[in-house]
């Protein structure tokens, strides 16, 4: 079995840091679970953590603790269900996420229609603690599991004409009450430039805190682009298309003056409504400074050399 090298920002499954006392018991469970997984998903890569690799607390690389699980699952922006951030938790409870196929096409050599379970089995699972900065001026620290979007892109082989990736969320007004109104041009659409999609930080996430994604967090599969405002990280993805033209996202269609295509976290580009210079970290008292590219400047600034970020906001 191949063992993936752990990066410092990668985390151990939830069961392992909950309590040191239960460590022995849970690690046995994890080991057998890993063995089981390895048996039925031969391509999945599982790391069996050793005692030394267990962090005493879940933190991001800047030292911030992960937001409480109940806050991550209890406070969400999911306009497909409601514009009230506390309501999706209840409204999405019975949302059906299995079976779920994702269609991958457009300018690619290997278009495919594939079950989420198969996608998850096909690519190495990674665990990352990322900051999530909402355009509305609040933020969280979220321990994700998922796989690198890059792995999928390499598999489907975009042709040389592909410049952008267009994501489309599910359209299901019967299950999603917010979609019963035409106030928003459903379905949700988002996009990335191909090089952004290929970046090592960009995930397709399928879990949080060692568990499957809850419906309100975007089950069964969602995008996570931690250096961009949260609305870029589209939930409940149905379609991924490789295209030549810059896709128009739902929020761009609604108000292009407020929501740009890039939507990189940038404290120097003000939004007409919310502060982009400071943010309320959920669970903390008082605000904190918002960091350029949400603190991922080192990793991503090369993507934007020579670009005027106030124009391409």
């Amino acid at each position: 079995m191949m063992v993936e090298k752990k990066k410092p920002d990668e985390i151990t499954p939830q069961e392992l840091y909950q309590s040191r006392r239960t460590f022995l018991k849970t690690s046995l469970t994890i080991t057998s679970a890993a063995a089981l997984l390895a048996a039925c998903k031969p391509t999945a890569v599982e790391t069996i953590p050793t005692a030394a690799a267990i962090p005493s607390e879940l933190v991001d690389e800047l030292g911030s603790s992960a937001t409480l699980e109940e806050d991550i699952t209890g406070f969400t922006n999911y306009y497909e269900f409601s514009s009230n951030k506390l309501k999706p938790t209840e409204l999405a409870q019975d949302f059906i996420t299995s079976p779920w196929t994702v269609q991958i096409g457009g300018l690619v050599e290997n278009p495919q229609e594939i079950l989420v379970e198969e996608l998850i089995a096909r690519y190495s699972t990674v665990e990352r603690v990322y900051r999530m900065r909402c355009v509305e001026g609040w933020s969280m620290v979220i321990p994700w599991q998922g796989f690198l979007l890059k792995d999928l892109v390499e598999d489907v082989k975009p042709t040389k004409d592909a410049v952008y990736v267009r994501f489309e969320g599910t359209f299901d007004p019967e299950q999603m009450p917010g979609q019963q109104y035409s106030t928003y041009p459903w379905p949700y659409v988002e996009g990335l430039r191909l090089d952004e999609a290929m970046h090592d930080l960009t995930l397709l996430a399928t879990g949080i805190y060692g568990k499957d994604l809850t419906p309100q967090n975007g089950a069964p599969i969602r995008l996570v682009v931690p250096w961009k405002y949260g609305f870029k990280s589209i939930k409940a993805i149905r379609k991924i298309d490789f295209v030549e033209e810059m896709p128009t996202s739902l929020w761009m269609a609604l108000s292009s003056r407020e929501y740009g295509f890039y939507a990189n976290v940038n404290p120097n580009v003000p939004h007409p409504r919310w502060s982009q210079a400071s943010e309320q970290r959920i669970g903390e008292s008082g605000r904190r400074d918002t960091l350029m590219f949400n603190g991922y400047e080192q990793e991503v600034q090369d993507l934007y050399t020579g670009m005027d970020l106030t124009v391409n906001f």
Binding site: L68, K85, W138
Partner: peptide, 9 residues
Amino acid sequence: GAYNPYPTL
């Protein structure tokens, strides 16, 4: 606790 975790908002 109906407005947690962000009652200020």
